[in-house]
Design a protein around this nucleic acid. Structure first.
Lengths: 184, 184
DNA sequence: GTCGACATGTAACCAGTTACATGATTAA
DNA sequence: TTAATCATGTAACTGGTTACATGTCGAC
């Protein structure tokens, strides 16, 4: 029964994210975390303990291989390389429609929704803080944009960055709007 | 040691959401789900099994009380009522700053980020679908807006609705933009 | 001699989802 | 007679987080 076995047990999103990073270059768990911080981490996050737990599973299921790299001045490290099977699985997942429509679960919006149960000041505080965060995020994204705009290097990352920018702007507009109203 | 004991074990967001609904009216688990679908569910979702598991916990910790309501033509039901302690806990949570800044975890954006690893067509398909979803959502929200705009009933729900509208519009603008670019 | 970068993991826990299970009443 | 609504839950699982644990090397 399990001879040709379409070993098609769906991977977790984190596993696909890791495969995505590995598809660019062989690297260790530690390196994956640095890489994530500088890019993919803006759209998908994972705790380091989870990265380390995901990697051996990828190897076990044939989506990656690992080898030990000995180092002199730094601790030795396990580096992981994506396999053909891994690439296939990743691409299949990438090409199938996105399952859930980013279901709405926001503690912030929940508090706003229940705004009538708190003091006006507390609510205004939440919204002001949201605005500040959006503004800080916007500044961060603009700085990144200045670096990568036009550069071909990561066009797709640039697309997601532009979503980030659009969303920050939307937050700022919305918070301004709401604050004006609440203060009137 | 545990006499005055500030029984301040943080509740889960779902528990606060339930308390929020209970603070408007006494109701059963089943009713909570209907109510959620018509409002708070747009900003916070919970599986029904979780609602049922959360309710006894609220009672156990003194945040709610429950009593059995006998019915003739329908099954009997347990109805839950928020206590003073529950209201206090809810209000405290509501007034403290929102903890996490809605950390970025979007399978959709992850796929866009890795757009270079799939066919152009697949990526365009994802974006088109995103646009359609945004448009459908927008229509839904506009319909709700027509019903509740101006009505005082749920001003705070209206605020969150306006965020929903703003976000849908941002999605549509972004997808249009990206689609134009990808097709050129 | 203390701090940060390098490097890898385990253990305990938790929130939440899916599937399963039951059973009455009522409207089409 | 078939399906929907009312009504409540349990069990198994999963994806993920936090805290703990360890140790070297190089820079300040």
């Amino acid at each position: 029964m399990a001879t040709t076995s379409a070993n098609t047990t769906r991977l977790s999103t984190t596993e696909y994210a890791v495969l995505g990073m590995l598809s660019a270059s062989e690297c260790s768990g530690y390196e994956l975390q640095q890489i994530a911080r500088a890019g993919i981490g803006y759209v998908w996050t994972a705790a380091k303990s989870q990265v380390y737990s995901v990697l051996p599973r990828l190897v076990r299921d044939g989506h990656a291989t690992s080898r030990l790299v000995r180092q002199e001045r730094n601790p030795d490290k396990q580096v992981y390389r994506i396999t053909a099977k891994g690439r296939r699985a990743l691409r299949e997942w990438l090409e199938e429609p996105v399952e859930d429509a980013d279901s709405a679960r926001s503690p912030f919006l929940l508090k706003v929704f229940l705004g009538g149960l708190m003091s006006r000041d507390a609510l205004v505080g939440h919204i002001e803080r949201r605005r500040e965060q959006a503004e800080a995020e916007l500044a961060e994204y603009l700085a990144i944009e200045r670096e990568i705009a036009g550069v071909e290097r990561n066009y797709y990352g640039y697309l997601t960055l532009r979503w980030g920018l659009a969303q920050c702007e939307a937050w700022i507009r919305w918070t301004d709007n709401v604050l004006e109203e609440l203060r009137a």
